[in-house]
Simulated scan of single mutants.
Amino acid sequence: MNHAADQQLIEAVQAGDEVAVAQALAGGADPNAAVSRYQGSVLIEAARSGRLGVVGLLVDAGARIGPFGYFHVTPLRVAMLEAHADVVQYLIAHRALPAESTTRTSILTEAVSYTRHRPRPAALATLRVLLEAGATPHPGEEAPLITAVMRPVAPAVLRLLLANGADVNQQRSDGTPAIVIAARRGDHGAVDVLLQAGADVDTRDQQGRTALMHAVERNEQRVIAALLLAGTVIDTVSTDGMTALELARGWQHQNVQFMLGEHHAGLDDEPITRTVVRILPTSVRLTGDPQMLHLLANVIVIVLDDLGDDEWATRTGVDANTARAVALRLRNEVVPAPNASWYQLDVTADELAATRSALVELAYGTTRVLPAATSRLEIVDLLEELNRQHGR
């Protein structure tokens, strides 16, 4: 064992110096020398840093491509995690795939997941290399398309998987089709990609429910629109006797009822079989810069002054005193957040409803006065941002 040569090799690999690496190997350095217990071998270090030339020298010298050390790390996996597609391709060409450990998550499943955690072109290129090399999930793991939809990942990843042979109607291990999973999660981008690739818009899960039914229950209006535009059948009946329209009525999703063709919608008390638990906050925390929170106060005051208390209550369904109180709080009770740079105010659900109602009136109602230096489109944007966060 030549400790001096090994140390020379480690330093050369860390520096990415191919000449010095070759010299150290020629001087008797061990191509499997460990950089440290946690960093792994010199080959793993070279793969992590994306030094393809160094990787080649080490492999040619007999460096071990398979799992190394206590944590069973492989050069291929660290190259994938760092999105070095060229290194991944080289290692695969030198039989790195069969050398991967079967006791860890498969490298393909991990590569799909990583496109969400570290989305960048190189991660997509690395996934493409693995797919083209025939990488597969381990037995018991979900198909890559299901993994992608469940994460969820960007549409580009789904398109790549489909282009490389993924079944657009792939089912999860419990029989749930990919498009139903995407609809349940409100992922309209994934729904659109799957539909464009030919997914069956009316396929059902084990309970006989379609993607439309799940999207309706969850008030996912962009998903509903995509499914309706694709021609989904509205009056399909599930195994437990539900239709999409009955689910919309039972959850009192009035906008969805109109989307499904209803001309009148009220607060129906219709019993349904529900597959989701809905969260209804009784209070929320508004966070932002003081001027933005003060803007909300100004909007409330302007609309109250324009409509008057009775008209306000009629149009919004919110007590005028509640609106006046929250406007005062937005002006006087906003405080700095601990350990953060924003300001905040805790408000009740009724106070939030008053704030949103004022924005609706100023954005789309009859009130024409606007806060100083603010356009109506800015009010519309602010309203839509609140609606998106509040799940409307």
Score class of each variant (00 low, 15 high):
Met259Pro: 10
Thr314Ile: 03
Ala320Thr: 04
Leu227Asn: 05
Val276Ala: 04
Ser238Lys: 03
Gln254Leu: 09
Asp310Tyr: 01
Leu194Trp: 04
Asp306Phe: 03
Asn298Ala: 07
Val318Gly: 00
Leu212Pro: 01
Leu229His: 13
His264Phe: 14
Val318Lys: 00
His263Gly: 05
Asp268His: 07
Ala297Thr: 15
Asp187Leu: 01
Gln291His: 13
His253Asn: 12
Gly261Pro: 02
Val299Pro: 06
Val193Gly: 02
Arg285His: 03
Val256Trp: 07
Glu220Lys: 12
Arg249Phe: 15
Val299Gln: 05
Asp309Pro: 02
Met292Ile: 10
Gln196Val: 06
Val233Lys: 10
Val256Met: 14
Val193Glu: 02
Asp269Ile: 04
Pro271Trp: 02
Arg278Ser: 11
Asn219Lys: 11
Met213Ser: 09
Val216Trp: 14
Val299Thr: 09
Trp251Phe: 09
Ala211Tyr: 12
Ser238Trp: 05
His264Cys: 11
Ala248Ile: 04
Asp305His: 11
Asp200Glu: 09
Pro271His: 02
Thr236Arg: 12
Thr275Val: 04
Gly250Phe: 13
Asp269Gln: 12
Leu247Ser: 06
Val223Gly: 02
Gln291Arg: 03
Asp268Thr: 11
Val256Asn: 12
Asp306Tyr: 03
Phe258Lys: 15
Ala199Met: 03
Gln196Thr: 09
Thr282Ile: 09
Gly261Asp: 11
Thr203Leu: 09
Ala248Leu: 11
Ser283Phe: 11
Leu228Thr: 15
Glu246Tyr: 07
Thr275His: 14
Ala265Cys: 07
Ala226Tyr: 01
Ser283Glu: 08
Asp235Arg: 13
Asp268Cys: 05
His253Leu: 10
Gly288Ser: 07
Gly250Ile: 06
His294Cys: 05
Met259Gln: 15
Gly261Phe: 15
Ala215Ile: 15
Gln257Glu: 13
Asp309Phe: 03
Ala244Gly: 08
Ala313Pro: 00
Thr243Met: 07
Gln196Ile: 00
Asp309Leu: 02
Asp240Ser: 08
Val303Thr: 07
Val237Glu: 15
Leu247Arg: 10
Val303Gly: 02
Gly250His: 10
His253Gly: 11
Met259Cys: 08
Gln196Cys: 08
Leu307Trp: 02
His214Glu: 08
Arg218Trp: 15
Ala265Asn: 12
Phe258Ser: 03
Gly208Met: 05
Gly186Trp: 09
Thr236Leu: 13
Ala215Cys: 06
Val191Glu: 00
Thr232Leu: 11
Val276Ser: 05
Val276Phe: 06
Val301Thr: 13
Val237Met: 13
Gly288Glu: 08
Leu194Gln: 10
Gly186Pro: 15
Gly198His: 15
Val223His: 10
Thr322Phe: 01
Thr282Arg: 15
Ala199Cys: 05
Gln252Leu: 04
Leu194Met: 14
